[in-house]
């Protein structure tokens, strides 16, 4: 079985963001990058499936972006993926979800992957489009938002997370694509021996120009902070004084404290 897992490298979401020179995305200076959280679940599930099936089965991890994304690929290799693919694109942040999906589909089209894992969305763009669009482009069945996954003899039993804690159980035959939701599993931390082993694994580099033939279908006009709605009180200072101020406000404004 050939398995592909697609990952994105994103900034730490605790960061402060400001527009870059283009005005349509964030300034990268001073940001720390890591693997998109949703994709960690995708990598973990792909590696678990390989562990279930045996060593003859192979997991390829793919990421698109500038050279820094190799770090995310290395992490996935240390988690247990077998080989990496780096689609080199310094301008990946300017591509729209349709183009990103087209790049992945162009890579995967003639490779005969039985199963493709993606995160359900990225933490930075959050379009939730890429996985499903790759599946449509490749003509693969696809289901999304997985919080449960089981594989047996060519059939996936997936548990989709719906609103209000309800889940939907779906069966689909491979080849297929699934998108992973937070909580699907518990992603492992790479161990030191596995980090060392990963250094020997191959990372194939492919220039984006070899894969992308599609024009963007959306344009970003601006990137900016939300308009402040105001009204809220912001309290800053020393903890003891903050406690006094808050207790005063709660006594004044709520019936909870008397």
């Amino acid at each position: 079985m050939k398995i592909l897992v697609c990952i994105k490298q994103v900034p730490d979401m605790e960061s402060r963001f400001k527009p870059n020179g283009s005005g349509v995305w964030f300034e990268e200076t001073d940001l720390a990058f890591r693997m998109n959280e949703y994709d960690e679940y995708a990598v973990e599930q792909a590696v678990r499936l390989k562990e279930q099936l045996g060593d003859a089965h192979e997991v390829t991890v793919l990421s698109i972006g500038p050279d820094r994304v190799v770090e995310a690929i290395k992490k996935a290799l240390a988690m247990g993926c077998d080989r990496g693919v780096h689609v080199q694109d310094p301008a990946a942040s300017l591509k729209d979800p349709w183009q990103i999906a087209a790049i992945i589909a162009a890579y995967a089209r003639d490779k005969g992957f039985d199963l493709i894992f993606t995160g359900m969305q990225s933490q930075d763009r959050g379009s939730a489009q890429v996985g499903v669009t790759v599946a449509e482009d490749l003509g693969l069945p696809c289901t999304t938002t997985l919080v449960g996954f089981a594989y047996d003899n060519g059939t996936i039993t997936a548990k989709r997370e719906l609103e209000g804690g309800v889940k939907g159980v779906v069966r689909v035959k491979t080849p297929a694509l699934v998108t992973c939701q937070l909580g699907l599993n518990v992603p492992r931390y790479p161990t030191l021996p596995n980090i060392m082993k990963a250094k020997k694994k191959e990372i194939e580099a492919i220039p984006v120009g070899d894969l992308l033939r599609e024009e963007a279908r959306t344009a970003t006009a601006s990137f900016h902070p939300p308009a402040k709605k105001g009204g809220g009180i912001v309290l800053e200072g020393e903890v003891g004084a903050l406690v006094d101020q808050l207790v005063g406000i709660l006594k004044d404004k709520t019936a909870v404290l008397r």
Binding site: D124, G126, A216, T218, F223, H224
Partner: peptide, 23 residues
């Protein structure tokens, strides 16, 4: 709704983008 496009959240809802369809 935004001028000539749509306002969407990004970066874990900390930021916004104005996006215009090109089709």
């Amino acid at each position: 709704l935004a001028d000539g496009g749509f306002e969407v959240g990004c970066c874990n809802a900390k930021m916004r983008r104005t996006v215009k369809p090109a089709t």
